[in-house]
Design a protein around this nucleic acid. Structure first.
Lengths: 379, 379
DNA sequence: GTTTGTTAGTAAAGCTTACGAACAAACTAT
DNA sequence: ATAGTTTGTTCGTAAGCTTTACTAACAAAC
C-alpha cells in the first residue's frame, strides 16, 4: 500500500493525480527509454517499461502523431517471428537553444540538437552591462541563435549566475545587477517558446549527470570569478530553502584566518579559490615550487570545506568545472587527499573527484537538459 | 507538458504509473488531509484537494469500508444548505509500535496512536548484547509491546543506529555488532506485520518534521555516545549514495589539531561533542568559567562543521537532539553564532537553531512516522 | 513445400478511475 | 410559503490500461 510516485522517498502526497497525469508520465517513460537506448521496437519498450505492447503502441501512435517519434525501418537480424519495426526519438526534428550567462564578461549561447550536441554558437560581450541592458543582451543573443536554428525550437534554456527560484526568477545576481528579475517569463513572452531559467551551477550539475556520466549523488564545484556549486542528490537537483543551495563561495574555511573577502569576512572559500585571487597569487610566486604550494593550499581549503558536506550527504562524486590549468593537477589532488584525510574511509574511500569532461559548454548543455526534461520529460 | 509527480523536481520517470497507482495517491491525499486538518466533510476534502465531491465520496467509501475513516456526526453550525457529515481518520482503530535502538545501553519501545501520542512504554537493558543476541532482544521488546497494544497494530517502526539501507537492512552498526542484518525482513516474518527499519537520526528528523514543527529543509543533529545527523531536504529524507548520509561524527573539524579519535583521526567532531568526551572534559574543569569555555568550544566546533553544510544545502533550520543540560545554552549559542559568522547573512541570517521539542522520544516517534507514511501515506 | 512455433503489432472488450450533470435532502433567509 | 444554498448521491461518460484474441511475418525442421 506504499503510496507516492517517483522513488517512493517522498512522504506526503501533495496534489491530486488524474489518469491523464499517469498518461503523461508513461509517455515520458517511453521517450526516456528511447532517448537513452536509441533504436527500439514497440515490443522492446514494452518489455523495458513493464507496460503492455498495446499501451506502448497507443502511446507511440500519439508520439508519432506529434512528430516526436519516428519509425526508422525494420530490424535486420536473423530470428524467428515477425521482424520488429524500430523506433527512435525524432532527434532531428527539433533543436534547443542554450544560454550561459555565468561568464564574467561574455554571454554565450548555442543551438543544440536533442542529444545535446552543439550545432552552432553565438556570443555577445557583456561590456559591463547590468540590469535592463544586460537582459536586452540576452534577448539579442537568443535572437541570433534563433536565426541560426534550422529546425523548430523545442525551448530555450538559460543558466544564470546568482539565486534563481523555481519559476525562473533571478532573485539576486550581483554581477548582472539583477534582483527579482523574472527572466523566464520575460523571455517566454518575448519569444513565445517554452523557457527555463536555472542557476548556472545547477545546470552544470545536470549536464554532467546527463552527458558526463556523473552519478546520482554528486556535487559540481564551479570555479571562476566566484565559486559556486550545484548538487544532485538521488538524481534530483537540490534548490534549498531559499533557492540558494550550492552557494559555498562565502563559507569561511579553516580556523586559521586568511585573506579578507569582498564580503567582509576573513577566509571565505573564494579568497583561496576564485580565479582572480589564484592568478594573482601565482603571479606573485617566483618559483614553481611556490606555485605548487599555492595550488596545493587552494585545493586543501576546498577539501576542508567539502569534507563536512561529503560526510553529511554521502556523496559519491565531486566534479570540478573551471580553468583546467588551475584546477586539474595539484589542486584537485590536494582536494581529494584532504577530503579523504578528513572523512571516514569506510564510507568515502571510493569518492571520486575529477574534472568535468564537458569543458566550457557545461552550462549551455545543462540548460538544454532542462529544456529536454521540461518539454519531453527526458534527460 | 511537464511530467513527473511529486514536486516536479525529479527529472526522469523511472517506472510505469497505472490508474490504480493514481488512485492510491489520491487515497493517501484524502487521508493526509484528514490527518492534518482533522474533522472535515467530504465537500471540504473536495475543495481542499481539487478532486470532485463524487470522487471524494467514492474514496471515502473505500476508506470507511476498511475502517480507516469514520463518520463522526454532523457539523453543528448555523448555515444555509444541507448540514455536512463530518469525517475523521479512525484514530482509535489502530496503534503503532515504535522502537529506538540508538541508546547506548537500552532498547526502548512504545505503543503509539495514529497521532504519535505514546500510550505505553517498554524497555530492555542491552547488557552488552551484540549480533544475534541483540536482535533477540529487539524481538522480545516488540513482543512485550504487542501485548500492551489494545488495538490492531498498523505496523512496527524501528530506528536503528548505523547505516541502514532502503530495505531496512542494517549494513553496519558497530555498537550492536551488526553487519548486513536484514532486521526489517526478519521482524516482518516473525510478526507478520508491516515493518520499517530506518536510521535513528533520519527517524528523528522525520519526527521533528511531523510533530516538532520543523521546516522542510532541516538537519537534525543527534548528540549522544556518538554524533550523527538526519537530513530533510525539500521534505524528503536524504539517504545518500551508500545510505550513509548524516554520518558527520567522524568528520575532522578545523585546521588546528585536536584530540585523537577512536577512529584514528585527529579532531573528529565526536572528540569535541560526544557526551562521554564532553562529560569527561567538564568533570576535569574546576571553575564554571572553564566549563562554559568547554561548552563554547564544543558548540563552535559543531558550527565550523555545519557552516559548509548550511551553505551548500541552504538549510533553514538545525535541530539538536541529546542531553539538554549539555546542548541547550552555551553550546547551542556558540553553534549558531559560529555558523552565522561563517556563512552569508543574506542567505542564512534567518537560520534557526534550536533544541528538539520531542525529548527522548524523538526516535520512537520518528519510527512511527515511517509506519504511518508507509501504511497510510500519511505523516 | 509444409508444418510448427515464435515474435510483432493490432483490435475488441472490459475494468478502473475520475468527471459532469442532475437531483434529493436539509437547511437558512426573506 | 418560497427562494436560495450546500451536501452528498446517482447516472452516464470519457480516458487509460489490461486481457484476450487475432493477423502478419518470420525461422527451423521435416
Amino acid at each position: 500500500m506504499n503510496q507516492g510516485f517517483g522513488n517512493g522517498r517522498e512522504l506526503r502526497p501533495t496534489t491530486k493525480v488524474l489518469p491523464e497525469h499517469a498518461r503523461g508520465h508513461n509517455r515520458s517513460l517511453v521517450m526516456q527509454t528511447l532517448y537513452r537506448e536509441g533504436q527500439l521496437s514497440r515490443a522492446d519498450i514494452a518489455r523495458e517499461t513493464g507496460l503492455t505492447r498495446v499501451t506502448i503502441s497507443d502511446l507511440v501512435a500519439d508520439l508519432i502523431g506529434e512528430n516526436l517519434v519516428i519509425e526508422i525501418g525494420q530490424r535486420e537480424d536473423v530470428r524467428p517471428g515477425k521482424p520488429a519495426t524500430l523506433l527512435d526519438l525524432n532527434r532531428d526534428a527539433f533543436q534547443i537553444i542554450g544560454v550561459d550567462l555565468s561568464e564574467y564578461a561574455t554571454f554565450r549561447g548555442a543551438v543544440l540538437d536533442l542529444d545535446g550536441k552543439i550545432l552552432g554558437r553565438a556570443e555577445l560581450p557583456l561590456a559591463g552591462s547590468t540590469g535592463e541592458d544586460a537582459q536586452a543582451k540576452v534577448i539579442a543573443l537568443v535572437e541570433t541563435l534563433i536565426e541560426k536554428a534550422t529546425r523548430p525550437i523545442l525551448g530555450i534554456g538559460v543558466g544564470s549566475p546568482g539565486v534563481v527560484d523555481l519559476a525562473g526568477v533571478v532573485l539576486t545576481a550581483p554581477n548582472l545587477g539583477w534582483t527579482n528579475r523574472s527572466l523566464q517569463r520575460d523571455l517566454a513572452v518575448r519569444f513565445s517558446i517554452p523557457v527555463v531559467v536555472i542557476n548556472d551551477a545547477n545546470a552544470a550539475a545536470l549536464a554532467e549527470h546527463s552527458f558526463g556520466g556523473a552519478t546520482s549523488d554528486m556535487m559540481l564545484v564551479k570555479v571562476g570569478h566566484g565559486v559556486g556549486s550545484g548538487l544532485l542528490l538521488a538524481g534530483i537537483p537540490l534548490f534549498g530553502s531559499r533557492f540558494a543551495a550550492g552557494e559555498i563561495g562565502h563559507v569561511v574555511v579553516g580556523t586559521d584566518g586568511g585573506l579578507t573577502c569582498v564580503c567582509g569576512k576573513v577566509g571565505c572559500l573564494e579568497t583561496w579559490l576564485a580565479t582572480p585571487r589564484l592568478d594573482a597569487a601565482l603571479a606573485n610566486a617566483s618559483t614553481s615550487e611556490q606555485k605548487e604550494q599555492i595550488l596545493w593550499a587552494a585545493g586543501e581549503r576546498l577539501g576542508i570545506a567539502l569534507a563536512p558536506v561529503v560526510g553529511a550527504l554521502d556523496l559519491s562524486e565531486i566534479v570540478l568545472s573551471g580553468p583546467t590549468q588551475l584546477l586539474d593537477g595539484t589542486l584537485a589532488r590536494a582536494t581529494i587527499e584532504t577530503i579523504r584525510a578528513r572523512t571516514m574511509p569506510e564510507f568515502h574511500g571510493n569518492l571520486v573527484l575529477r574534472m568535468t569532461t564537458l569543458g566550457e559548454d557545461i552550462v549551455l548543455r545543462g540548460a538544454a537538459v532542462m529544456v529536454l526534461s521540461g518539454q519531453l520529460g527526458v534527460s
